[in-house]
Design a protein around this nucleic acid. Structure first.
Length: 882
RNA sequence: GGGUGUAUAGCUCAGUUGGUUAGAGCGCUGCGUUCACAUCGCAGAGGUCACAAGUUCAAGUCUUGUUACACCCACCA
């Protein structure tokens, strides 16, 4: 027995430092390929190297740690593989900022010089978030840590690109893409976020060359008119049918363009005529392609006007817009301006307005890849939690567009494509071609672009395990078990991992996907820098400890909704951890010196059996909830059991045995206290790893650390009768406390308890010490009939037994009459209800027979109670009158 | 425009296949304890279960519609 006294309060800082080191040094985080055991694998959603731990990270990593710790304790060979993402846009922006301060730029440094600086930046700051994950207690296998740009992963990226190209699933094409002028790169469709912005709708008049007619068009982007190469109307629109095929003139540039018919035009919107700028609008691009219209670029890669019209060259869009509108006004072709709100695409990284731009880019052909990915979810090879995300997933996958994967950035995986300097022929290969091009030229120049960051993240579940080699790790740990991540990257990442894995490995990447919501502030607002409503998890760890942070994130968590987080949660967490600490301190103290090996199952007392039954149920519940990722419910059940059943009831019930050195069942009490706490610590460990480990060390000084303790299993127990007896006792104790509280009876005033019961006598008498401890009793007497019970007594009863508490000088008859009258009213109300129900012929005729019987049964017991209350009342009234 | 989700006590949320005075934790108020506990026990206030209609013997629970909020997709220039 460890006799070291526990400190008064838990010291999180000390425990965190101590235990994290013991776990890590002890190799408990590192699994081994072991065919004798089942693997359980989780791949971390790799945080960006630019990242700093925020509450979202804290949540997603706590959840993963909860699952992985449970699985480890359940005996799985558990791998939680950590790592970071190179985050091309975000990191490149940071490095550009950094060198800017030194008066440098990408152009000055050149590609190589810039990348050198980027790697230096990564070495210095890229590990921040990893250190922070360790503070949170994450039990990742740091020996397998990966980085999306490290050598192995880069090779995989290259291989996959080349393979997809050779299969015709990657192609280069001229298309309209989303261009962020600020990041100076293309973006994929999902990297564009739309925001409503107040703007105007400008109506512009396009005259026929001979002024015989005109068409008015409405636009939100008047500046793009310089690049108009057509005007479209709906083919079924009678108003304009006669103009189809005729020409009109674009003002300012005086270009003659044709009026075309296309069904995409809404007759109701604006004037029913649309100007077509194929270079800068997705609909216009498609229409232009269909009708063979010329593509004229109005805006360049910097978001400035091109030299299409000399005087506007180099202007930013808003300035140009103003001047062009002025000019249209002067020309007398500006018909009107209406206020209008429309959606503007914004870059999800920098929030600058995105420009649709014609450009030659690399794409992944999605349709062939999407099909099996849809199938895998449909046939439940992959399950999403919550299930409703499957609908969203299907909808997106079924309508998916080709994925633009080239980025005009340097920080990332460079596209393994080479162009013949002379004829431009493309060769896709891992190394620069050494052979001559068919044109005879031997100069090959590599594509300048890099790949979308998500292209490499999509390969994460298998690239991290050494694929395409059939490594031991890959064979053993792949496919992975569960992916836990935020619902915001279902498309960005989850979907792409699914189709990538299926195509590359022929296997699903994971069988379960758990998606959690966003963390919001107490008012339900997003946490953001501008609102300054963010809570820094590192501050929380410093002030409350990692366990409290974890508890506060999981408590009340539901995957169905966003999470409202406030500091209040930490008070609850703190109180809970304190309660755990103190109860353990008490138990350790209380059982010290008691020989638990003298424990004999045959000597278990009813309260022991009751606790063991409850414990059993808690093991089942918590395990089941965690298996279905109901984290909040699992913790709640554990919380309730621990606080109410274990602390408030069980500890209190066994105190008399503990304090009585001659008690014959002291060993059993100590055993159950110890065992119960041990199970609680085990079940609690995934949520609160540090405090539980600290306590477990005192509770089981000679065993392995809790992190590798065996997860509790529910056993078959047949303690029904004792269980019910304890419940009966609890009913009486609660009722006695209740009555006494209402009558303001001092706790120091102990009473006799006289029970009248047919078959619970033995138990109730045996429970005398508990009634004395918890029910303010000085003695317990048991009788088998009411005869001779003193009249001046409080009476509480249920169907199994009745208790009489003689007033002595505690209560007066009036108070008891009042109390019983209220009881009487309550039962009369209940009876009225059941009577009405049974009087309803429809109910009796149509409700299931057992329901009707149930109501009848209820009414009968209510009536019995009422009769008893009435008898008592009459007797008391008679006595009061006398 | 299409879709998904949420709406239950001051706050955070439970409420199983519809079954009968709607629950927990926290907070608040009051009383009492201080014998492991920055405690604990008991009680109280506080709910037209968003609204409306319907199905049913019976609706917080099912159906339809409405409203509010959140999110996703689409992009009518």
């Amino acid at each position: 027995m460890n006799t070291t006294e526990l400190d008064k309060y838990f010291n999180p800082e000390e425990a965190e430092k101590k235990w994290y080191q013991i776990w890590n040094d002890g190799g408990y985080f590192t699994p081994h390929v072991n065919t004798g055991k089942d693997p359980y694998t989780i791949m971390i959603p790799p945080p960006n190297i630019t990242g700093k731990l925020h509450l979202g990270h804290a949540l997603v990593n706590t959840l993963q740690d909860v699952v992985i710790r449970m699985k480890r304790m359940q005996g799985y060979e558990t791998l939680w593989l950590p790592g970071t993402d190179h985050a091309s846009i975000a990191t490149e922006a940071k490095v550009v900022d950094m060198i800017k301060k030194e008066g440098l730029s990408k152009d000055i440094l050149g590609r190589e010089g810039f990348l050198k600086r980027a790697w230096e930046w990564k070495e210095e700051y890229g590990g921040t978030i990893i250190r922070q994950l360790k503070k949170l207690g994450c039990s990742c296998d740091w020996t397998r840590e990966r980085f999306t740009l490290d050598e192995g992963l880069s090779k995989v990226v290259q291989k996959v690109f080349i393979d997809l190209y050779n299969e015709g699933l990657i192609y280069k094409g001229e298309r309209l893409v989303n261009w962020c002028p600020f990041c100076h790169s293309t973006l994929s469709d999902i990297e564009v976020e739309y925001e409503e912005e107040p703007s105007s709708l400008w109506y512009i008049r396009y005259w026929a060359p001979d002024k015989s007619f005109y068409l008015d068009v409405a636009t939100t982007r008047p500046e793009t008119m310089l690049g108009d190469t057509g005007v479209a109307v709906n083919p079924s629109d009678e108003r304009f049918a006669k103009y189809i095929g005729k020409k009109v003139v674009v003002p300012i540039v005086n270009r003659e363009i044709e009026v075309i018919a296309d069904p995409f035009v809404e007759t109701e919107f604006g004037t029913g005529c649309v100007k077509i700028t194929p270079a800068h609008d997705f609909n216009d691009f498609n229409a232009g392609k269909k009708h063979g219209l010329e593509i004229l670029k109005v805006i360049d890669e910097d978001g400035l006007m091109t030299d299409l019209v000399e005087k506007y060259k180099g202007m930013d869009i808003l300035t140009a817009r103003k001047l062009i509108v002025d000019e249209l006004q002067e020309l007398g072709v500006l018909v009107k301006i209406e206020p209008y709100t429309h959606n503007v695409g914004k870059c999800y990284r920098c929030h600058h307005t995105v420009e649709p731009m014609v450009s030659k880019q690399w794409f992944v052909k999605m349709e062939p890849l999407a099909k099996p990915a849809i199938e895998a979810v449909k046939n439940k090879d992959i399950t999403l939690y919550p299930e409703r995300y499957e609908k969203t997933y299907f909808h997106w996958m079924e309508n998916i567009q080709d994925w633009c994967i080239s980025r005009q950035l340097w920080w990332g995986h460079r596209i393994p494509a080479y162009y013949c300097e002379k004829c431009g022929k493309i060769e896709v290969a891992a190394e620069k071609p050494t052979h001559a091009c068919s044109c005879g030229c031997t100069n090959w120049i590599q594509d300048e672009d890099t790949l979308d960051t998500w292209f490499s993240s999509a390969l994460w579940p298998f690239s991290t395990l050494g694929w395409p080699e059939e490594t031991e790790d890959y064979k053993f740990f792949y496919p992975t078990s569960t992916l836990i991540t935020g619902n915001d990257i279902l498309f960005f990442w989850v979907a792409r991992m699914i189709f990538s894995a299926l195509h590359q490995t022929g296997k699903i990447p994971f069988s379960k996907v758990v998606l959690h919501g966003l963390i919001r502030d107490a008012q339900g607002r997003k946490m953001s820098k501008s609102l300054n409503n963010g809570i820094d998890p590192l501050d929380v760890i410093r002030d409350y400890g990692a366990d409290a942070l974890r508890f506060s994130l999981v408590q009340g968590l539901s995957l169905e909704t966003d999470i409202r987080y406030s500091m209040e949660r930490l008070d609850i967490a703190k109180a809970f951890i304190n309660k755990l600490w103190n109860s353990a301190k008490f138990v350790l103290n209380g059982i010290e010196g008691i020989d638990r090996s003298a424990y004999n199952k045959a000597n278990l007392q009813p309260e022991d059996k009751w606790l063991l039954t409850k414990l059993n149920q808690t093991i089942k519940d918590v395990t089941a909830e965690l298996e279905t990722f109901e984290f909040g419910d699992a913790l709640q059940k554990l919380y309730d059991f621990f606080w109410n059943d274990y602390c408030s009831w069980y500890i209190e019930m066994v105190k008399p045995r503990l304090y009585d050195e001659n008690c014959k069942t002291r060993a059993e009490a100590a055993y159950v206290l110890h065992y119960g706490l041990s199970v609680i610590l085990k079940l609690m460990h995934p949520f609160l790893p540090f405090v539980t480990e600290e306590l477990y060390e005192r509770l089981e000084p000679n065993s392995k650390p809790l992190i590798v303790a065996e997860w509790p299993k529910a056993e078959y127990l047949d303690y029904k009768a004792d269980y019910e007896n304890i419940e009966l006792m609890q009913y009486f104790i609660t009722s006695i406390r209740n009555v006494r509280a209402n009558m303001n009876i001092q706790p120091s005033r102990k009473t006799n308890l006289i029970f009248v019961t047919k078959d619970k006598g033995e138990f109730l008498k045996a429970a005398e010490p508990i009634f004395m401890k918890l029910g303010f009793a000085k003695s317990v007497e048991v009788r088998d009939s009411k005869a001779g019970i003193p009249l001046n007594a409080i009476n509480i009863e249920n169907m199994d037994a009745a208790v009489y508490i003689p007033f002595e000088d505690l209560v007066d008859i009036k108070a008891e009459i009042e109390r019983l009258s209220a009881e009487k009213e309550k039962y009369e109300g209940l009876i009225a209800r059941t009577k009405a129900q049974l009087a309803n012929e429809q109910f009796v005729a149509k409700a299931p027979a057992d329901k009707v019987a149930e109501v009848k049964e209820k009414q009968k017991s209510y009536e019995t109670m009422l009769t008893s209350i009435n008898e008592r009342l009459n007797a008391l009234r008679g006595s009061a009158a006398a």
